[in-house]
Design a protein around this nucleic acid. Sequence first.
DNA 1: ATTGTTTTTTATCATTTGTTAATGGCAATC
DNA 2: GATTGCCATTAACAAATGATAAAAAACAAT
Lengths: 194, 194
Amino acid sequence: MTKLNKKVKNIIDKIYPISEKSFQEIERLIEFETFKKGETFIQKNKRNKKEYFVLSGVCKSYLINPDGNEITLSFFLEKSILSPYSIRTSKNISNQYFKALTDLELSSINAKEFETLMIENIEIRNFANTVLQNELISKVEKEIGLASLTAKERLIEFRKKYRVLENIIPHTDIASYLGITNISLSRLRKDLIN
Amino acid sequence: MTKLNKKVKNIIDKIYPISEKSFQEIERLIEFETFKKGETFIQKNKRNKKEYFVLSGVCKSYLINPDGNEITLSFFLEKSILSPYSIRTSKNISNQYFKALTDLELSSINAKEFETLMIENIEIRNFANTVLQNELISKVEKEIGLASLTAKERLIEFRKKYRVLENIIPHTDIASYLGITNISLSRLRKDLIN
DNA sequence: ATTGTTTTTTATCATTTGTTAATGGCAATC
DNA sequence: GATTGCCATTAACAAATGATAAAAAACAAT
């Protein structure tokens, strides 16, 4: 197994461990992609047909609101998996943007072929369902946060979940994730120093 | 086909039309349940193994925050489908509560058996995937709303989506859905009269 | 090192939202 | 018809957040 593929296996196993045999099915499909910091590598309303693993770097999913501002939906750290294809696309068309916040190394696999594996192989299916559930749990947690915590509490939670991020990505991205302005974020940062 | 099963077929077809033949597979699994207004019919951290169709009435999914308050996640109107099993449960254990907000008539089917159908039948699989995507789209829309709209704008959006609800369910449920207090909701209602 | 650009912080003021408490409406029950 | 409990509204004040502008800091390119 190449070093790259081993990385993918590790990401999978951290979510739902699968056998060597099952992984070999996936391995055949793996491709490698890199993007420069700042690049939007999945465009909303454009065709996309892949599942992605983040090997190194950080990226975000986002949308653009009526005022033209980017609203961060989620962050994806290294050694994790992007939102699964099935929930970010309809009819091969992406419903979100994804942007590299640092230089980014991804592995990708064809989503349709992966779906076939999923149907045939229970381990892979369980893995995929776990990804799906984690995604939803994370969305619900965020929803709860936005609906019932103050901005300060949300920042505290954010720091627990994404320790590293605050020092390596623009605060604007974090602020829109938290549902506040970057000025408010700055105030809260000052406030939390004590 | 019984009147009840016909209702289920209509709900499915509104989401993703399937053939008579495919529906017959599902039909065998359908059961019927009713709940009284106010009843919590799915408990968090309790076992649950079903998919649900709302035949009549209104219900909500919710969680309880650290202060002991119910936080409404979603509303489900009549002739719709509950959040799919796969995203509201892990290992047969529910991660959310569901409560009847009016007297409620549901059809339910065993989730495991439904998953088997899904694997075998592409129409049913496409239906299930559409449900999944709709669920996610709705979650993302709500997330965007909470992160980038004012409470007043969120109420306006809520009214577009759930016209009937404001007059038939407690405003507390709506307020927590909107991420505000019921006092704020009352103010906004007054404000929007003009 | 210097310059120009972008990001972050700070300040001021306006607005929104929360908290607490009081009030009024409505339905169920006795 | 009085009582009770629940829900929605209102009021007064406090706290949080937004908008705008300006200053400071960080960063990038040369």
